[in-house]
Simulated assay, not measured.
Amino acid sequence: MAPDQRGSSQTWLNVALAQKLAFSASSAVVAETSTYPIDIVKTRLQLQGEVGSLKGGANARGAFGTAAGILRDEGLQGLYRGLSPAVGRHIFYSSIRIGAYENLRGFFIEPGQDASSVGVGTKMLLGATAGVIGQVVASPMDLVKVRMQADGRRVILGEPPRYRGLTHALTTIVRKDGVSGLWRGVGPNAQRAALVNCGELAAYDQAKTLALGYGLKDGLAAHTAASVLSGLSATLFSCPADVVKTRMMNQERQGTVNLYRNSLDCLVKTVKNEGLLALWKGFFPTWARLGPWQFVFWVSYEQLRKAAGLSTF
């Protein structure tokens, strides 16, 4: 290939990569914003019954009771508490994980083949790897989101929230725990991300491959079916790790002692005090959110790629 041709090809690849990153970030922001109230409910449910948790009205409610309680006690804004760090997180997290997965998958596609030639086991491993990479980068934003979501329970008891906003939360955490405090819970966070993306990306990729194999066109119907299956798969895989992650990130150091020493300690204490099914607390709102989230994200992302003249995922 001539030098000018190589340069032109490289430029096109760079533009295509930039478009994919921008499309994945913008699609994730739309999906996150539209389903965020369900995430608030899920987080509050996961904190119910926690050892050392605040006593009061947020406990012993189901998903609908929790949502109604938030509206009654905190107003509509309570359902969007922590939205800014959640959106900021997905700008980094989703663009990195989607880009990493697709690029890693490319190494396993044989010449003359397409993505359907990659085995499901390989896709699961690639999904887990991509999830860990994206989550480690975005973990500080996830920490702030969980803390701000949990602050609503303080409002119920008439106590001031710990943080006034995103900037105040970041500076407060750094001042109290140091820069490393922004990565509190990064271990269980990364574990959850690995499981989520093992279930989500691999399931979407494989389900779409199967849908096309059964004669569906690479369009809305195939994308919808694949997104629904990926949402269910991601929820089943990730809910226990999500509960542990939420509790690890919400805890604050009390002197020199933490409620949980590590993610395993949190897992053991949760099962010991609340039973095995406590690891699936918030399953319904998690699934109820992941289903619509997956649909909005994947359909938006695939359509944006199509409109830009790029191949589908």
Rank of each mutant, 00 (worst) to 15 (best):
A2M: 10
Q5A: 13
G7S: 10
S9V: 10
V15A: 07
A16E: 15
L17K: 15
A18L: 12
A22P: 00
S27Y: 04
A28E: 03
V30P: 02
E32F: 02
T33C: 09
T33Q: 01
Y36V: 10
D39L: 15
I40F: 03
K42P: 00
Q46E: 04
G52H: 04
G52I: 08
S53Q: 08
G57F: 06
A58V: 07
R61M: 11
R61N: 11
A63V: 00
F64N: 02
A67T: 13
A68C: 09
G69V: 09
G69Q: 12
I70F: 06
R72S: 15
R72E: 14
D73H: 07
G75M: 01
L76S: 12
L79I: 04
Y80D: 03
L83F: 11
S84D: 13
S84I: 14
V87F: 03
G88K: 11
H90R: 12
F92I: 14
R97I: 08
E102S: 12
E102H: 05
L104I: 08
F107P: 01
D114Y: 04
V118S: 04
G121L: 11
G121V: 03
T122A: 02
K123G: 11
L126I: 10
A128R: 04
T129Q: 02
T129H: 02
T129C: 06
A130F: 04
V132E: 01
V136Q: 01
V137F: 07
V144D: 14
V144P: 10
R147D: 12
R147Q: 14
A150G: 13
G152P: 01
G152S: 08
R153S: 12
R153P: 02
L157D: 13
Y163C: 07
Y163W: 05
A169D: 01
T171Y: 03
I173T: 10
I173Y: 00
I173S: 00
R175G: 12
K176W: 04
G178N: 07
V179F: 10
G181C: 00
G181T: 04
Q191A: 15
L195A: 13
A202S: 15
A202P: 04
A203Y: 00
Y204S: 05
Y204I: 08
D205H: 11
D205N: 13
Q206P: 01
Q206S: 08
Q206L: 06
A207G: 07
L210Y: 13
G215I: 03
L216D: 04
D218W: 10
L220R: 13
A221H: 05
A226Y: 05
S230Q: 12
T235A: 12
L236W: 05
S238M: 10
P240Y: 11
V244Q: 07
V244P: 09
E252H: 12
V257Q: 14
L259M: 08
R261H: 12
S263N: 15
L264H: 13
L264N: 09
L267N: 01
V268A: 08
V271M: 06
E274M: 14
E274A: 10
L277T: 13
A278S: 12
W280Q: 05
K281S: 15
F283N: 05
P285H: 10
P285C: 05
T286V: 05
T286I: 02
G291M: 11
Q294A: 11
W298A: 01
Y301P: 02
L304Y: 03
L304I: 01
R305L: 11
A308Y: 08
G309I: 08
G309D: 13
T312G: 10
